[in-house]
Design a protein around this nucleic acid. Structure first.
Lengths: 148, 148
DNA sequence: AATCGTTATGCGACTAAGTCGCAATAAGAA
DNA sequence: TTCTTATTGCGACTTAGTCGCATAACGATT
């Protein structure tokens, strides 16, 4: 998981404030969970963790907040190749998109930043005249340790 | 949707036979639906269509068959950026992977084959020593007609 | 500080996707 | 035809996510 050390805690809160979006207790709890996460979390994990901060947080508030953050382009939604069922995972959007590689044997998730990926997106924007808002590249296979 | 004219109907059946996998009525119905599809179908659409061929086909058989085909690397599973809820879509795997671009305004799905995408996969295989079995690149944004 | 329009929340009931165990059935090799 | 093994339909279940609604809380304004 990307957790750049340069990242200011409370950044998501600030970004929402800048956009004139109301801040609330449950929202703060959920944002802090996402900001301090060290691995990819799904909605129910986010709910559980948020409740340790604010016990009243409800499941639907988690979903609504995730929708808000997605719409604002502040988080990305991942499947991680459905390694563990159908749930979705979330992570903060950083400046540079990265590729997720999921090992189908050991379950390890590897992230990878690639210039080629950036060129590919430019190619799509140009050749297809498509305006990209989200790009998600997920790969499933065997990691270096698990391939033989 | 890719429906190459060179494609032999019954190809999936043959591939399964080659691998010594048992052929059954329901399975045949489901395969034919997938083979003759002209757009991306989800599990319940596949079920509905398969039932016009063999009325007894059950939902769980559809899911089990889709799992089988996924495991055999004969179909790909797509989200299409969750344009219409959480369902998954399926398509036959062809020789060349392609990118799916989903327009978030009009819902159009555009497919794109790219050399750069192939290089990117090679890069992952090489630099990360990752053995790729599935690669899924989905893009959400605005298509040429909907961007302004 | 008190007011007030608007937005967000918790609750609970609901939908829809997908899973699973099991007894019955059908494939296909012998 | 027989027999083993894989597959099926059924039905009950789980789990992710949605929605309407009455209540609560934000935060701008006075």
């Amino acid at each position: 998981m990307p957790l750049p050390q340069t990242e200011i805690p409370g950044r998501l809160q600030m970004q929402l404030a800048e956009r004139g979006i109301r801040m609330t207790g449950p929202r703060r709890a959920i944002l802090s969970v996402i900001e301090t996460a060290t691995k990819h979390l799904d909605a129910s994990q986010i709910l559980r963790k948020a409740r340790t901060v604010d016990a009243s947080v409800d499941r639907s508030t988690v979903y609504r907040t995730l929708d808000l953050l997605k719409r604002q382009g502040m988080i990305d939604e991942l499947d991680l190749m459905h390694l563990n069922g159908e749930r979705h995972y979330y992570e903060r959007k950083t400046g540079h998109d990265h590729i997720h590689m999921a090992c189908l044997r050991c379950g390890k998730i590897t992230e990878f930043v690639s210039k080629t990926f950036e060129s590919l997106k430019k190619q799509l924007e140009g050749e297809c005249r498509f305006h990209i808002l989200v790009a998600r590249l997920e790969v499933g296979g065997y990691c270096s340790a698990c391939r033989r």
